[in-house]
Amino acid sequence: MEPQTNSGPLKWTLITASAVFLSVFLLLPLAYIVATALRQGMDAYLAAITDKYTCKAAWLTIQATLWAVAVNTVFGIAAAWCLTKFAFRGKKIISTCIDLPVTVSPIIAGLIYLLTFGRQSFLYPYLDSWNIKIIFAVPGIVLATIFVTFPFISRELLPVLTAQGTDEEEAAALMGAGAFTIFRKVTLPHIKWALLYGVVLCTARAMGEFGAVSVLSGHLWGKTNTLPLYIELLYQGYDFTGAFAASSLLVVMAIIILALRLWLERRGSKELDIRK
């Protein structure tokens, strides 16, 4: 079935061009991180990644990621359920608003929270009197992380639920099932893989977010530095072994995420084929 154009020297020229391009732009930076992290030996590397501040930064990154995944999962399921199972006005507006955060530059994401909760905001006196700190503190970092990953889960769920329609849920409801039972027994099995896929995407973006978090963090050592921000501090302090060692942790996470993604894609498409 292969058309004739796809044979001969053209094929191998294009394959070579792709391989060279990807090696230079993707693999070389990755290899460089590992090589630089290990340049001063294994001991220096281990010392760098078990450093007190590295661990604190890693823990803050994990916290922010968990919050983002939790909030966006709840939101994603609620929004997908609400937008696909019911007919009402304003659906289009809601779905546009959900997608807004990814079209906005991360720096602007940081800026809008700064304007909302910062010193010049009308909310500031209230927050101050209740002693709530959001800007330059952990809540700001968590909020920024939620914002930049906001549509990641709902966007994966919406097409699946739209394609599935409402017949099965209607049947279940007619037979007297409650909302949670319908969700658990009817809807969840359909969206299981899409949900996991969304969680993986959300995790990837959340742990690597830099711009928005950078605006809101205030860069307090051991308090409001996430791993990417801590890498910036080390790099600017010319501690290259430390910076690349901390980066290598994120490289490992990125590789795990890519592998999970491939596995989910294959697993998910297999399930869909069976159902067809």
Binding site: L83, L143, A173, A179
Partner: peptide
């Protein structure tokens, strides 16, 4: 719609959307 859960899912959606996206914007 005979499917239950509109109020809850709509409420959760609008609340989180407002807090995270609309009010800051």
């Amino acid at each position: 719609s005979i499917i239950p859960g509109f109020g809850l899912s709509f409420g959760v959606t609008i609340t989180i959307l407002s807090l995270v996206v609309l009010i800051p914007l």
